[in-house]
Amino acid sequence: MADLSQTAPTATGALGRGSDIKRQRRIRRAIWYALILAIVIWCAMVPVRDGNLSIYFAFMLGATMATGLNFVAGFTGYMPFGYVAFYGLGSYVTGIAVKLLGIPVYLAVPMGGCAGILLALAFAPTLRLSGIYFAIVSLSLAIILQRSIALMPEEITGGSLGMNIGVLTDRIQGYYAMLVVLVMALLTASWLAESRLGRSLKAIREDAEAADAMGVNVVRSRLYAWLVSAFFASLVGGVQAWFTGAFDTFTAFDVLVTAKAIIYAMAGGLGTVIGPVVGTVVLVWADELVWRAFPELNSFLLGLVIALLILFAPRGIIGTLIRRYPRLRNYFM
C-alpha cells in the first residue's frame, strides 16, 4: 500500500456521507421498537386470556432488573454484586409508605425509586473502587442495609415477619405497573445507548484512562449511569411488593435477585440494549421448562448455566453472534 495519503478524501468532500449510517440506525431502531411493541402486546394480554401471571411477571421483573443492571455493568464495567440493595430498599419504602403513611401505591413506588437514587448517591464513593473490590463492597453494603432494616422497630418494618400490604394493593394493577416500568427501562436503554452519555459510558468501559484523555468526564458519567441503574432497581422492588403483597428482609435482599439480573444480562450480552431482554426470555423460559421437569435441579442448572456462560460465551448470545457475524451490529441495538 504505497502512499495511501494521496487517496484520502478531504474533510469537505466527506460531509455528504453518513446516509448509510443513518439507514442502519433506522433499521436498528425499527427492530427494537417492534420488539418492545411485541412484548407490550403479549404481556398485556396475559391477564385477559388467563395466562400464568407469575411467569410473565417474573419475565418482566427479570428483564427490567437485567436492563437496569446493564446500565452500570454493561455500559461502565462495574459489577454491582449488591444490586439487590436498591431493590430491597424500593420494596421497603413502598411498603412503609402504603401501610404506615396511607399513600396510594402508585405514588409509593416512585417514592421508592427516589429513595433508590438517594441511596445510590450515598454509595457513590464506592465508584472509585475497581473490579473485585467494588463487587465485594457492593455486596457488603447490601448486607449492611438488610441488617439495618432488621434492626428497625417492628412497628415500622414488620420485623422478622416482614411486611404484608396485600390487602391494600391489587395484584393485577401490580402486574401492569411492572409492564410500565419495563417499557420505561427499555426506552431509557435505547435512548442511553444512542446518547452522548451512553457513548461516553461505553468508552469508559473499554478504557477509562483513554476516555479521560479524550475529554470524557469519567466520574460524572459513571455517576449518572449508577443513579439510573439504582432508580430502576428500586422501582422494581416497589412493584414487586405491589404484585406479591408480602416480603421480608430475606426475600427483599436475596442475593439471587442480583445473581439473576447479572446472569440474564450476561446471557443475552452485557453492553447491548437488546441482550438483557433476549437473555431473560431464554432463561426464564428454560427455567420454567426445567423447573416443571426437575424441580430439585433448579438451582443446580442455574449455577451450571452461569458457569458455562462465563467459560464459553462470556459475551452472551447477542455479543457472541455479533462477534461471529459483525454485520449483525447493524440490526441489534
Binding site: 495519503s5 484520502a8 478524501p9 478531504t10 474533510a11 466527506a14 460531509l15 455528504g16 456521507r17 449510517i21
Partner: peptide
C-alpha cells in the same frame, strides 16, 4: 460526517 472524514484521512 466529521468522524467519517477523520477515518478517511487515515484510510
Amino acid at each position: 460526517a466529521l468522524a467519517e472524514a477523520g477515518l478517511a484521512e487515515v484510510n
